[in-house]
Design a binder for these strands. Structure first.
Lengths: 219, 219
DNA sequence: TTTCTAAGTTAGATTTGTCTAAATTTTATT
DNA sequence: AATAAAATTTAGACAAATCTAACTTAGAAA
């Protein structure tokens, strides 16, 4: 199956929305791809034709098995390039997403697998997301909850869901990265903000917007 | 200046033709890009508009200073990726050209410069071509002639001009790579083929087509 | 100098991916 | 159930890059 860059981006976004929301809608996908619902409808017809998605007028979109496989291959490439950029070229985690968005579209299995090998077949990327293997299989995510829903006080950061430079720069500035251990001091109900403390540093408060995007596990 | 992939490929091909032929014609460029003269005319208008080429109807095409600079940046990226693929991912020289054709279009100065640094700022690529530096300056090619025009008997291979898999595989099979030292045994005038000998191996004959694409220097 | 041919250009069509505006369907609300 | 609101689709248009077919120009040959 030969996909255009645009088609690959649709597949990837559909996969992401299937993971994080329930039901992929025309409008939701348009928002995710920063395009218009009308464009999504057009592309949906094309991807249905290629048997990558199930789609009926007004009934939403979902990936077929083949579509899912395609998505996992794109995600594999994306995450491997992110590893490369961080580990070999010394980029920081907030810089790599955009570059990987471009590099991921170079479709060569040989390149992908050689790159993986060169990096020591990593299983998580710089944002804590798992990397599918050459067959498209992904190691089960360790059970992780977003910080705003955590039940226990002492936690370790396992991943970040929003890859925007803005969020990642903010976290870096606050000293939060993968593996950071933190403690919840207080929850403020009026705006769902949370006061947290890292090690012996002074406590500080983060908004719900931020805590929603920090994935953690009890420690 | 923001160039599309198609525009970058035109600029690159124009640069190549300026180097290897005299005068860049519509037909020649169409042939190089595997497209039609009519398409070249269309694109020429666009690139003239962007001040990357000088172009007047029926008068041929040439790069402006700005166009040349753009070309050198693209070539830099292409050759650095070729080095990466060969040196780090263990690809052979006949496999890397096509992949680099895709990777070269990821436009990020930071990525390019970090990659160069990671590779130890190489100055020649796996085919023996010089790599422009971050400013677009290229180390003077060592004086090199194609094998079919060499004046002396004992020669060393410095570069290969045709990057097709077919030629490179042939050379590899014959034991010819960068740095290979060889001796001209005989020239056959009727078809301009050449009999050569490497080290102590038995001599063999190569066609003019091949010898034209092997660059050498006296040794 | 005229004529012919190869090279180059224009005109109009096509494909991909997008858009806006209008029409339609679904869903939520009274 | 009727109607309003929101979501979705259709219709028609556009830009980029390409093509074919027809036309024009430049330069070589006579």
């Amino acid at each position: 199956m030969n996909l255009s860059v645009a088609e690959e981006n649709y597949i990837k976004s559909i996969y992401k929305l299937e993971e994080t929301t329930d039901g992929v809608t025309t409008t939701g996908l348009a928002y995710e791809l920063d395009t218009k619902p009308a464009s999504v409808t057009d592309m949906a017809k094309k991807l249905k034709e290629k048997k990558l998605i199930d789609y009926e007028k007004y009934q939403g979109i979902s990936l077929t098995a083949e579509g899912k496989k395609a998505a996992l291959h794109i995600i594999r490439r994306h995450r491997l390039w992110e590893c490369f950029l961080v580990e070999k070229l010394d980029f920081s985690w907030e810089e790599v997403h955009e570059l990987a968005e471009e590099l991921e579209h170079v479709r060569s299995e040989k390149l992908t697998n050689r790159l993986s090998e060169f990096l020591g077949n990593p299983v998580i990327d710089p944002h804590g997301d798992p990397i599918p293997d050459a067959q498209g299989k992904m190691g089960k995510q360790r059970t992780q909850v977003s910080l705003d829903q955590a039940r226990t006080k002492r936690l370790e950061v396992t991943a970040v869901s929003d890859k925007s430079t803005a969020l990642l720069e903010f976290l870096t500035a606050k000293g939060i990265r993968l593996g950071t251990q933190l403690e919840i001091i207080e929850r403020y109900e009026f705006d769902n903000s949370i006061e947290i403390k890292i090690r012996n540093q002074p406590a500080f408060t983060i908004s719900e917007q931020v805590s929603k995007n920090i994935m953690v596990r009890p420690v």
